[in-house]
Design a protein around this nucleic acid. Structure first.
Length: 316
DNA sequence: AAGACGAAAGTGGTTGA
DNA sequence: TCAACAACTTTCGTCTT
């Protein structure tokens, strides 16, 4: 659904892989800036978390925003006017029900308010675009309604929802990044992520290593050619079925490493490993496979030779 | 001296009986 | 529920630049 292409981001300046997502937005995968919006009405206006301003700002009902605890819809048990018409006995009954409902909904609302605040905090820390935040809110809301939060901390469910939302929008952050941003243990996030996606039936595509390239690339300050090269290598690797079953970050990192060496922008394995959150060993393994299976050895040597020659020319 | 390489042992998660 | 298993990590010694 998402098509990728290279473009320069006016916000963070990084020459970057942009993605047009299912909402028609073009998003910088590095800083999360929304470059172009073609859709009529998503995002923007709903900055509210209190129900007072909500009614004023929202248009006729739809679209239902996920950042409000019940999406603006709700069931209430009778109005005051209704109740006045009833006899005393029934009145008491309905008032009890109203009270109950009030108790339940305020409890959920309180929880959701807190959660949404946390969600916003973490997502802005990670510079995630608005659609992801919306999606995560929706996931969290459903999780609460299904009682999946019980026995888990709110924060971990928030992180899990965010992680899932990132994956869905193909702007993945690693579990490590989520862990750092939220202060929740990586394993815990992974666990709740698996749990809630399973319980809610959220369909997640296996994450695509290509999605990691732009961010790693800009963090390593590699130029656009190197980045394209890395994507190229990655696509070849996918065709050669080198990618299945491996950690996507490792493969992305290895492709980037090879591409960097080829383009005379060499980074050490350590550097690449650090930004990708894997070890040098993993990079080495993937990198060895890439060279072997894709017959890149010759190309690599050739490029290195060229680079050397250029370096000598410079000296003169 | 730093980076690259590879072997060996350990960890956490998945899978299948 | 347990054991086998694959991917990844940690650690460490050796080779290369």
């Amino acid at each position: 659904m998402a098509s990728n292409y290279i473009k320069k981001c006016p916000e963070c300046g990084s020459i970057n892989l942009m993605s047009r997502d299912e909402r028609g937005e073009i998003i910088c995968k590095d800083c999360g800036l929304v470059i172009e919006e073609r859709m009529i009405d998503f995002g923007q206006e709903w900055r509210e978390f209190d129900s007072e301003s909500a009614d004023k700002r929202r248009r006729t009902g739809a679209p239902i925003t996920a950042t409000k605890f019940d999406g603006g819809l709700g069931t209430s048990i009778g109005t005051d006017a209704d109740i006045l018409k009833l006899n005393t006995k029934s009145k008491n009954k309905y008032m009890r029900l109203q009270k109950w409902q009030h108790r339940i909904s305020t409890a959920i609302e309180r929880n959701l308010k807190l959660a949404l605040a946390e969600l916003k905090r973490v997502s802005s820390f990670l510079k995630l675009p608005n659609p992801v935040l919306e999606d995560a809110s929706e996931i969290y809301r459903q999780a609460v309604q299904r009682g999946l939060v019980r026995g888990r901390s709110m924060e971990s469910v928030v992180s899990g929802a965010l992680y899932a939302a990132c994956r869905r929008h193909e702007i993945p952050r690693t579990l490590d990044e989520l862990a750092e941003a939220s202060g929740i243990d990586k394993k815990e996030i992974g666990r709740t992520y698996r749990f809630i996606t399973r319980e809610l039936g959220v369909r997640i595509l296996p994450s695509n290593p290509v999605d990691y390239i732009p961010r790693f690339s800009s963090e390593l300050k590699l130029n656009a050619e190197t980045q394209s090269k890395a994507v190229e290598i990655l696509e070849m690797a996918q065709k050669a079925e080198l990618t299945s079953g491996r950690g996507p970050t490792g493969i992305a990192a290895a492709s980037l490493y090879v591409a960097a060496v080829m383009n005379n922008e060499k980074r050490t394995q350590r550097e690449v490993a650090d930004v990708a959150g894997v070890t040098e060993v993993t990079i080495r393994n993937r990198y060895k496979e890439l060279l072997k299976k894709l017959d890149l050895e010759d190309e690599l040597k050739k490029k290195q030779k060229e680079n050397k020659e250029e370096a000598e020319k410079e000296k003169e």
